[in-house]
């Protein structure tokens, strides 16, 4: 059963079309991942689904409600965790949660009990009285997620929930997302951590330049990715020179520079390493490392978007700063 249905959704800002007629469904109880490079239209889509942006055209249905006309009804059953922690700096963690609950009409006794429960669940019970501005980044993120689920939403929208926080907090947040989903909450997740998407999501939609160019379940995506054999060589030579050298000697093989000194060779057929070693040796290129890459969702992402993950991470971190 679909809990979110999106049909021909378009969002234009003047002449610029940020979202170009996308179609997708999210099934009740699943974790749906929305992946794409910066500026692909992920946040604009989330904003349209949650009521922060008005679509130019198209249809949104959420839990049976018209998501455009009856957005206030939709907002009762959805929780939103934006890409930045946006609670009130001068209020304590506890007061922030209680305030957020009151926006949904939850009565005093219940909202205070729920706030205490969530603080405990998110290991913030000792910091409940501290002001939000005194929290670490990881703690802020956790409290923002707690605020997003204070009213027990049916659907939770998470925009980059683990970006810019420490490893341990990120791990805890992933566990919380998993627990929430196990308890029946539908999750709509955007992330640029492919591994996170691979671990958490049931299905993934890839969006590039405002269009969904691939939508499939993670299992099928991985099977597709694993039909390719990949070998990576790290050498003392320039990556683009290596690329030219390999292409000229092994026509029909796919070669791509990964870093300044390494290239990735991929093929649907089995790759013999020795001919490449010989080629490099004959050209005086020293090989530091040769490794077989087990294709993951990352390869699918690179193939679809044409964007290197490292570059994507750097872009995201830069944007956060």
């Amino acid at each position: 059963m679909n809990i979110i249905e999106v049909k021909n959704l378009v969002k234009s800002f003047g002449e610029f079309k940020a979202v170009k007629g996308i179609n997708f469904n999210v099934k009740k109880g699943e974790v749906f991942g929305f992946l794409g490079p910066n500026g692909a239209g992920k946040t604009t889509t989330i904003n349209m689904l949650t009521g922060l942006a008005a679509p130019t055209s198209g249809e949104i249905t959420i839990a049976g409600y018209d998501g455009i006309k009856h957005i206030k009804k939709v907002q009762r059953i959805i929780g939103i965790v934006p890409d930045e922690s946006n609670l009130y700096d001068d209020m304590s963690g506890f007061d922030n949660l209680v305030f957020c609950a009151s926006l949904y009409g939850i009565k005093k006794g219940i909202r205070e009990k729920r706030a205490k429960e969530l603080l405990k669940q998110f290991s913030l019970d000792n910091a409940g009285k501290r002001t939000f501005k005194a929290y670490s980044k990881g703690m802020k993120r956790k409290l923002t997620i707690a605020a997003g689920i204070i009213h027990n939403p049916e659907i939770l929208f998470l925009d980059e929930p683990t970006t810019g926080i420490d490893v341990e907090s990120a791990r805890q947040i992933r566990k919380m997302i998993k627990n929430l989903n196990d308890n029946g909450t539908t999750i709509f997740l955007t992330t640029h951590y492919i591994e996170e998407a691979e671990r958490l999501c049931h299905r993934i939609g890839f969006i590039v330049e405002g269009k969904i160019i691939k939508l499939s379940n993670v299992h099928d995506l991985l099977i597709e990715a694993r039909q390719e054999n990949i070998v990576e060589f790290d050498t003392d030579s320039n990556g683009s020179n290596l690329e030219k050298l390999v292409i000229s000697n092994f026509p029909g093989i796919t070669v791509k520079s990964v870093t300044d000194h390494s290239i990735r060779i991929s093929s649907r057929n089995r790759i013999e390493i020795m001919p490449f070693m010989k080629l490099f040796d004959n050209n005086g290129i020293k090989i530091n490392e040769a490794k077989v890459i087990r294709p993951s969702l990352e390869e699918v992402f690179i193939k679809i978007t044409g964007i290197e993950i490292d570059k994507l991470h750097k872009e995201k971190e830069g944007k956060k700063k």
Binding site: T50, L52, K72, P82, N86, L103, A147
Partner: peptide, 14 residues
Amino acid sequence: RSRSFERLLLAPIS
């Protein structure tokens, strides 16, 4: 500026 106003806009009130 702090984006906390978004939280209010996303609340189920007119």
